[in-house]
Design a protein around this nucleic acid. Sequence first.
DNA 1: ATGGTAGGTTTCCTA
Length: 252
Amino acid sequence: MKIATWNVNSLRVRLPHVLDWLKTAKPDILALQETKIPDEEFPIAEINQAGYQVIYNGQRTYNGVAILSRKPGSDIITDPKDIDDAQRRILGMTMDGVRIINLYVPNGESVDSEKYQYKLTWLKKITQFLKQELKAHRKLIVLGDFNITPEDQDVHNPKRWAGQVLCSEPERKALQEIIKLGLQDCFRLHKQPERSFSWWDYRLQSFQRDMGLRIDLILATPDLSCSQCYIDKVPRSLERPSDHTPVIAEFN
DNA sequence: ATGGTAGGTTTCCTA
């Protein structure tokens, strides 16, 4: 099974890129974040035409998640118990006995902001939710835009980013708490090129200068044997790209 | 030294 995650930063704008990418990459599952589109306006027909089923949990202007899949999913979840969040950031389903949880983790803005506290609280609640999911599913994949760099090796300039949002210790610790529940960062199960990133700021020509971060992650239980995990930088190099590029994992 | 760009029921907010 080939599964991918991609923050598209507006599905309305990025739909042509997504459809092209489906054609060439042919994933079984593609999890999207920042669709920024209300459910009643979701482009179902175009995605079906491309040979994919789709479920979504969206809102206007901000946030929004979707899962495209070769086969229909079951046991769909959008609002786990006790999370109580109006922002549309969570979407889960089961396909072929594999439980998939797609997350758009809050960005956090800056470590001294209210949004940072919201991010940490949200992560704590999600950890409890994932603990329950792990009890029920031996084959579980948690993927999406985590808005956290796991380690300094995931940062183009660790000195400049030290202590900043996306790189701060409390966030990294929160991510480790999730991993410690019994998940693996698929990307680090394999030998990877140095300076592997999944996001580059639109500003300062960051992509051209390779000033990026690896904040889009695929976490999986060891019961799912991951044969490879890699980043496809091509979509980020196209005209009018998302600021994120797809991360892909393949399982036996 | 805190810039810059992109998207959105747009003149600010979010990333």
